[in-house]
């Protein structure tokens, strides 16, 4: 069988970089394809305090720099290009790039990741970039001395609410339940921070603006009452949606939300095709998970390439 590469890794976040590290060390003829610079959603993260080995914590930025330097040390081949579609049928898989190029491979690891989910309320789309934000690290410094809102109750929401208190005078967390999902130590910090307020059992109904951007958020409580929140910014941190636009959903099995179904060895429904990181259907999306899954997927691919095991396609 003729193919350009034994293995192609699509996506250069922690899952893809970890897979790439194992591939380079395994002397697999591998290519990692990334549309921008490596990093994925870690680049949206201000500070990482839960990646083992970094006892003092590390910025999302620096962690990715280190992961990239690590694959470079072992000579992983990388290509910076956007993938437009994939053909995963048959023993030789084809990756189509937006620039018209095609690259073929015998096995492939899909690490396309996820992106912040949108609320889907009136005003959200129109005011994105003018007060509506999905990246506290990027946009926090624009809100010095102002009052802002954060939507969500998970780790990302609460961690970033804490980060935003470095800039904003007041951060109101809007959460649809009466308790947070965030890790306890993060919750404790948030409850102890006098710049953070909470609106419990509350949902955003509408985001309003004037010519300068956001100036009001309409909030409805579960008991039917409503309130207005005069904020200049609203950070929406309510989980993720899959980056699956380039995936052949007629060939791959995905869950109801569009994340790829795979087994404990990261095998998807197609032999020789693996998934790792946030694009996988799973409960917990952590950087350390993504890295672990990348390693696992690559070792599964190596076994497949050696003919020792052909993907069963069973979950």
């Amino acid at each position: 069988m003729q193919a350009d590469y034994q293995l192609i890794i699509v996506g250069g976040g922690p899952a893809g970089l970890s897979a790439g590290l194992y591939a380079a060390r395994g002397r697999v003829k591998a290519l990692l394809i990334e549309k921008g610079a490596p990093g994925g959603q870690v680049l949206l993260t201000d500070w990482v305090d839960n990646y083992p080995g970094f006892a003092e914590g590390i910025s999302g930025f620096e962690l990715i720099d280190k992961m990239t330097a690590h694959v470079d040390r072992f000579g992983l081949e990388k290509k910076f290009a956007a993938v437009s579609k994939l053909d995963l049928r048959g023993p030789v898989k084809t990756v189509f790039l937006e620039n018209g190029e095609q690259v073929t491979c015998l096995s492939i690891i899909l690490c396309t990741g996820a992106r912040p989910r949108t609320l889907g309320v009136e005003g959200e789309k129109e005011l994105t970039g003018q007060g509506v934000s999905y990246c506290a690290t990027c946009d926090g410094p624009f809100y010095k001395g102002q009052e802002i809102a954060v939507v969500g109750g998970g780790n990302t929401a609460i961690q970033e609410a804490l980060h935003l208190t470095k800039f904003a005078d007041k951060v109101t967390v809007i959460h649809r339940r009466d308790e947070l999902r965030a890790t306890k130590i993060v919750q404790e910090k948030a409850f102890a921070n006098d710049r953070i307020d909470f609106l419990w059992n509350a949902q955003v109904k509408k985001i309003e603006g004037n010519g300068n951007g956001v100036n009001n958020v309409k909030v409805a409580f579960n008991d039917g009452s409503t309130t207005d929140l005069a904020v200049t910014g609203i950070f929406i941190l309510i989980g993720v949606a899959p980056n699956n636009e380039i995936l052949p959903l007629d060939q791959l099995q995905v869950d109801d939300a569009g994340f790829i179904l795979s087994n404990t060895e990261m095998e998807t429904s197609i032999p020789g095709v693996y998934a790792a990181g946030d694009i996988r259907s799973k409960n917990f999306r952590q950087i350390v998970n993504a890295a672990g899954e990348g390693a696992n997927a690559e070792l599964s691919a190596e076994q497949f390439l050696a003919g020792r095991k052909h993907g069963t396609g069973q979950h």
């Binding site: 930025f61 990027c138 410094p141």
Partner: peptide, 14 residues
């Protein structure tokens, strides 16, 4: 762009 912005860095090569 700004140096503290990850996504800014990501689109740099483009």
């Amino acid at each position: 762009w700004a140096p503290w912005c990850g996504p800014c860095k990501a689109i740099g090569p483009v």
